[in-house]
Design a protein around this nucleic acid. Structure first.
Lengths: 117, 117
DNA sequence: CGACCACATCGACGTGTGTCAAAATAGAGG
DNA sequence: CCTCTATTTTGACACACGTCGATGTGGTCG
C-alpha cells in the first residue's frame, strides 16, 4: 500500500534552509496560527500527551474558559489539520494528526522521523 | 523602554510529554503566534536562511507588503524573542535568536510517540 | 549645511478573533 | 414518549491585528 498521495504533509523544508515562498508560508503559518493561542496550545498539549493518544472533550475542558469556547478551539485545531475527532456514543474523542506533528518538527530541523505505521 | 524583551529561555517540555500549564501555554503561544502570519513566517525564514546568519531589511523586504508593514512585522518577531537586530551604519541587520529556535524545536522533539497502553 | 537613503513610528481603517450566554443536535436511559 | 448529559452551533460583542500613507529619525555623502 505505498499509495502516497496524501496532500496533508509535504508542507515545507526546514525554516533555516531556504526562504519560504508565499505559498509555503501560507500553509505553514496556518498551523502556527492554530497553536498561537494559549488555550488552544493547552488543549493540543492535553490531547497529545493523553494516555492512549486520544482524549474526550470532558477530560480536557478544564482550561479556564467556557465549554462552548473549548469546542470552538477544538474545531479550529481540527480545521488546521492538527487534530482529528471521532464520536463514540455520548462522547467525542480527539487525537493528534501524526503527520501534522511530524511536519511541524521538520520545520525546525529536528530530524523528525516520519511516522512509520 | 517599551518591553522587557525576554529571550526565550528554557520554555517548555515537548508538547506530547504532559499537558501544558497555563503559564507554559502563554509563553509558547507567544512564539507560535509570532510565526502564525504568512508575511512574518516568510521574513523569519529569510533571515534564518540568509548567509552569515543575518540579513539587512533591504534584503528581505520583497514580500509583497509595504515597507512600514515589513518593519512592523520585524518588530513583532523581535518582541517575541525570535529575532534580534543591530544597526550598522545605514542598515539594520536582523538575525535569529538561537535559543528561540532551539526552544521551538524542543517542543516537537520526540514527535510521533505512538500509543502507550 | 543640505539632499538623500534606510528604517521606524504614527494615525487611521477594515477585518479577524476570542469570548460568552442561549439555543440546537445527538445519544443514552428511564 | 420524555428527560438528562455531552457537545456543537448561533448570535453578538469588545478587542486585537494587518495594512497602508504620511511623517519622523538616524546616518551617509556631496
Amino acid at each position: 500500500m505505498s499509495h502516497t498521495t496524501e496532500p496533508a504533509t509535504p508542507c515545507c523544508p526546514p525554516l533555516t534552509e531556504r526562504p519560504f515562498t508565499a505559498e509555503e508560508s501560507e500553509r505553514a503559518a496556518r498551523m502556527f496560527k492554530a497553536l498561537g493561542d494559549p488555550v488552544r496550545l493547552r488543549l493540543f498539549s492535553s490531547v497529545a500527551s493523553h494516555e492512549g493518544g486520544e482524549a474526550c472533550v470532558c477530560d480536557i475542558s478544564d482550561v479556564g474558559v467556557s465549554q462552548p469556547t473549548v469546542s470552538h478551539h477544538l474545531k479550529k485545531l481540527k480545521e488546521a489539520g492538527l487534530l482529528a475527532s471521532e464520536r463514540r456514543g455520548t462522547w467525542v474523542y480527539y487525537r493528534v494528526e501524526p503527520s501534522a506533528l511530524a511536519a511541524m518538527g521538520a520545520l525546525f530541523g529536528a530530524a523528525g522521523r516520519p511516522a512509520t505505521p
